[in-house]
Amino acid sequence: MSFDNVYEALSEDGDARWAFGTGFADPLAGVDTTVPPDVAGADLAAYCLMLGDDALVMSHRLQEWCTNAPDLEEEVALANIGLDLLGQTRMLYARAGHADGTGRGEDAYAYFREPEDFANVRLTETPRGDFGDLIAKLLVFATWRLALLQRLITSRDPVLAAIAAKGVKEVAYHRDHAAQWAVRLGDGTEESHRRMQAGLDRLWPLVGELFAPHEVEERLARAGVAADPAGLRAEFDAVLDQVLTAATLRRPDVPPEPGGGRGAHTDALAPLLAELQSVARAHPEATW
């Protein structure tokens, strides 16, 4: 180990090619990919698309902060979180292509479906807004998704369980990051408090959808594959209350926005997908 080059000192086994990365782990190594025999492949695929679409759309909204974040440190943090979610998306899309028997790849799901085919919750697609909107959205999304993934660790689908086990560590950090900011903004200046509260207020009508079960989720939850979203509410409320109290923020008291239900979308999704899909659709044969 040399101390002349800090990265050499940090790399494993003195690998001089530290820039290429070392010590990678494959989260799906050795996992049985057989779909449990009593589980409908179409249901499992639909469920993987719900979770994958949530992560993809949320990831895209986070990536929109690149070059727009309040400082460089936060910009990299947001990009890291977006990339974590993109990684989850890829594994979930790959599982969907296996489970529905079509063998479709990740790109087919991300780039060559129409907005009405996407199953993400509307909360993920809301326009970028300001930093208060972002932290409110990230706090709500990560708190909800962490509760969900923690339950999927024991899913009877071994691939979903492995994806969840990896995702829990990632999303726990996302939730912590959002909570740290929520406390600093909420308990910060008058202006930061106002904006943080406004972000929560704008978002809150879409929170109810997170806990409304889709029929696919109900069937798979009975089969021990999925988590019943209604069962996540108590944990979500407890975590949110703790953060909001520390942040001197109040839980918005607004009625839920009707609609949604994993398939109905706001006007914001189509332009988001148009941008996300533009390169792949302009050059459908390209590889990267």
Partner: peptide
């Protein structure tokens, strides 16, 4: 947290 995000994102630490 910023250090984690800026300086350990390639598995360095």
């Amino acid at each position: 947290r910023n250090a984690r995000d800026l300086y350990t994102r390639r598995n360095e630490g």
